[in-house]
C-alpha cells in the first residue's frame, strides 16, 4: 500500500494539509507528500510529524494550471506506485482531482468526511449535507478528497526528508493576469469557529458588532444569501446550499431564520448557537444553544463575556 497526498503549499502550510497527511497516515503503508509552490524545505519537513515518510516538491510549477498539476501528481503517483491519492477538498482539488481521475482511470470520492469503513466504502455528504452517502471505488487506484475540518491532525513522528521532484509538465495554458488575496483572513471552509449573520442585522452599518465578536473569538465571518445578494457583505461569505458549505466546530447564527437552504450548508457544524428574536425561527430546531433575544443587545454582551474568558483563560 502506497499513499500519495497532494498539498497546496503556496501560502504556507494550511491546517488542511496537516489533516490530509494525518488521514493518509491512518490508511497505513508508505506515505509520500507531493507539492508545488513556495513553502521552504524546513516547514515541509515538519509534515513528517504528521506521518509523511517523504515530501516531494516541484518548485517550477506555480500551481495555477490544473493540467500541469495533474501531470505533476500523476508522475509522482507513478514513481511511488500510489494506490490511494489524497487531496483536501478545496478549490484546487475541485479542479485537479477530476482530471487525475480520468487520466489514471481511478475512482474519485469527493468530500470524504471519515476514514474508509471496514468494507472500504467512504462516507460523503450528499444533498447539500442533508444526508450521507457511502461510496465504493471500483478501480484499483482510489482518489479521496477530504472535506476540510472533518479530521483532526495528529502529531507524533519526526521531521522527514524533502526531495525535489520534476514532472517535466508542459507549459501552462492558463495565463494569470492578476491575483487578489484578502490579507490575514481565515479561509471560511477551514475556519474552526464561524460567526454568521443574516437579514436580522438590518443593514451593513451594523456589522461592526458581528466583527467584534468574531475578532474576540478568533473566528471567520459568514452570512446568509440575501445579505450577500443585496451587497451588505461580499459573496465569498455566503454560506448554504448555493454558497459555501462549512462544518466548523462552532457556528454562531445571528438574525438568520434557518431556511432549509441555509441549513444545508451549515448543519455539519459540531455546535450551533442561534441568536434570534423569534422563538418560532426554524433555526432553533437545529441549534444546540439558543438565545431568544435582540442581537443588538446580546452581541455586545457576548463579546464582553468572550473577552473576559480569554483574559482569565477559563
Amino acid at each position: 500500500m502506497s499513499v500519495l497526498v497532494y498539498i497546496n503549499s503556496n501560502s504556507g502550510l494550511h491546517k488542511s494539509a496537516l489533516e490530509t497527511v494525518s488521514y493518509g497516515k491512518k490508511l497505513g503503508g508508505n506515505l509520500t507528500v507531493i507539492t508545488s509552490g513556495s513553502a521552504d524545505d524546513s516547514s515541509l519537513a515538519t509534515l513528517g510529524k504528521y506521518g509523511a515518510n517523504k515530501v516531494l516538491v516541484d518548485r517550477s510549477i506555480q500551481g495555477n494550471d490544473d493540467q500541469q498539476l495533474t501531470q505533476l501528481i500523476a508522475s509522482a503517483a507513478d514513481s511511488v506506485g500510489a494506490t490511494t491519492i489524497i487531496f483536501s477538498h478545496d478549490l484546487t482539488a475541485k479542479a485537479v482531482a477530476p482530471r487525475l481521475s480520468v487520466r489514471l482511470k481511478a475512482g474519485l470520492i469527493s468530500g470524504a468526511i471519515e476514514l474508509p469503513a471496514a468494507d472500504g466504502t467512504v462516507k460523503v455528504n450528499v444533498f447539500s449535507g442533508k444526508a450521507f452517502g457511502s461510496v465504493k471505488v471500483n478501480s484499483s487506484v482510489k482518489i479521496i478528497s477530504l472535506l476540510p475540518n472533518s479530521f483532526q491532525p495528529e502529531e507524533n513522528g519526526n521531521n522527514c526528508a524533502v526531495e525535489s521532484f520534476s514532472s517535466n509538465a508542459s507549459s501552462s495554458l492558463i495565463k494569470v493576469l492578476s491575483t487578489k488575496k484578502p490579507e490575514g483572513e481565515i479561509p471560511l471552509p477551514e475556519a474552526e469557529l464561524v460567526v454568521s449573520a443574516g437579514r436580522g442585522m438590518k443593514g451593513p452599518e451594523n456589522w461592526g458588532m458581528v466583527e467584534d465578536l468574531a475578532t474576540a473569538l478568533g473566528a471567520a465571518t459568514a452570512c446568509s444569501r440575501p445579505v450577500a445578494d443585496i451587497g451588505w457583505r461580499p459573496h465569498h461569505e455566503h454560506v448554504g446550499q448555493t454558497g459555501v458549505a462549512i462544518r466548523p466546530n462552532l457556528y454562531i447564527a445571528i438574525g438568520i431564520s434557518g431556511a432549509i437552504q441555509h441549513l444545508a450548508g451549515v448543519n455539519g457544524s459540531k455546535v450551533i448557537v442561534v441568536i434570534n428574536t423569534d422563538a418560532e425561527a426554524p433555526f432553533f430546531k437545529a441549534a444546540d444553544y439558543g438565545i431568544l433575544g435582540d442581537a443588538f443587545e446580546v452581541l455586545p454582551r457576548l463579546t464582553e463575556a468572550v473577552k473576559k474568558f480569554k483574559v482569565s483563560g477559563q
Binding site: S101, A106, A131, F132, G133, S134, V135, K136, N138, S139
Partner: peptide
C-alpha cells in the same frame, strides 16, 4: 469508477 452503496440520515 464509483458506486453509491447506501445512504444514511
Amino acid at each position: 469508477l464509483t458506486t453509491y452503496v447506501n445512504y444514511t440520515m
